[in-house]
Design a protein around this nucleic acid. Structure first.
Lengths: 214, 214
DNA sequence: GAATTAATTAAACGTCCGTTTTATTAATTG
DNA sequence: CAATTAATAAAACGGACGTTTAATTAATTC
């Protein structure tokens, strides 16, 4: 056997990425074999090497593109408005929606860092740090303007990111709550956590506008 | 070669546990081999089978004991006082201290669930759920007494747990902040997040007492 | 329609894995 | 000090792993 009827490089590569994300998210990178991923796609393991030079390179590609998409989504969602509270609202809403829509890819990006080589790890961490810096800047601006109560910008940023990323651990799209309901609750918690100075009605108006814009 | 001079079962078993926690936390369960762990202890791989019947059983033992210790620590720290805000304070302070002191074991317990068999997984999840229920009860009692503002008990509990467990991701004991300083900041964030009804001075008094008691 | 390029299979390579078996020595017991 | 038990080493087992090589067929190009 050799090239199969109807085979197409583009489609095969996309299928490999999908299979890899699903399998690695469920079983972990080290536990998943090239043969398993190939079987999911419906090809032999050797065929994967036409698209990715090594197993680790496949992992690194998945993580890099996930982080680049996250940055791009935030760039597109970032409000023209420079009010720190509005920016914080947009950041949290965008973050939750992005991660809930990509539960499996997020799991891979968060759990498999230790399987990367030094260079690949540095690469991914740089993207992550750049993204997290956005939140720190918002918190610092808000604190400077007297609109937020933030004891320690770095700690608060980490606390918020862990809180809102953690949604993917328990959230299932087909259960009790919708993404918008979850986002609203987490926004309320974030605003209280940061002591955001804005009356309740204003905040609700802004949140609703934020959610409708998506 | 055979039994070595000065060999002792108790010491060897403890050394295996330590080596396993360190190596699995750093490289992941699937990536660590029985031979690596044995080398860290200074024995051959076959010697591990005198203490643990399989690799997975070793993992499960580490996780089970970690969860049992967590429950025991909370039982000991639980305040006689039934004020929900005081209980929340104790819960957060105990949780952070416990996890910071056991960074590696916590990493193992949080990251390697997917490597467990059905039965072992069920076992660990039961322990985890029981522990998390403690926090939900505190939040519900606080909300019922009008002392906390909690929109959704389940969501708030998950948010708080992810926030305070996330400390181990970035905290390094030899850096800028002490455990007590980090705990104080996270307690302040928790109190704001739950809209705890208590004036600042009272809260500080209680937090200080909490910290001094450890 | 021949030549070229793209996509894939089949088979193999050397290595490492979790685990078992067997033998051997150290420590303890009576 | 003989008998027993505890703790280990050494070697092997079958299987799976990531990856490479070579051959083969489908699609495209000229």
């Amino acid at each position: 056997m050799a090239r199969t009827a109807g085979s197409d490089g583009g489609r095969t590569e996309a299928a490999i990425r999908d299979a890899a994300v699903q399998l690695i998210a469920r079983h972990g990178y080290e536990a998943v074999t090239m043969r398993q991923m190939a079987a999911e796609v419906g090809v032999q393991a050797a065929a994967l090497y036409r698209y990715f030079p090594t197993k680790e390179d496949l992992l690194h590609t998945l993580m890099r593109e996930h982080m680049e998409e996250l940055a791009a989504t935030w760039d597109a969602a970032r409000p023209a408005n420079d009010d720190p509270v509005a920016r914080l609202t947009s950041f949290v809403a965008n973050h939750i929606r992005f991660h809930v829509e990509r539960r499996h890819a997020t799991h891979v990006s968060n759990m498999e860092l230790r399987s990367l080589s030094r260079d690949n790890l540095t690469n991914i961490l740089k993207l992550r740090t750049t993204y997290e810096k956005e939140l720190r800047t918002i918190l610092r601006d808000g604190a400077d303007a007297g609109l937020l109560e933030v004891d320690d910008t770095g700690l608060t940023a980490m606390a918020i990111i862990q809180m809102i990323t953690g949604v993917i651990v328990w959230f299932r799209p087909d259960e009790r709550l919708s993404v918008d309901e979850v986002t609203a609750t987490y926004l309320a918690m974030t605003m209280r956590l940061t002591g955001a100075k804005t009356n309740t009605e204003d905040r609700h108006v802004r949140q609703d506008a934020e959610l409708r814009a998506r």
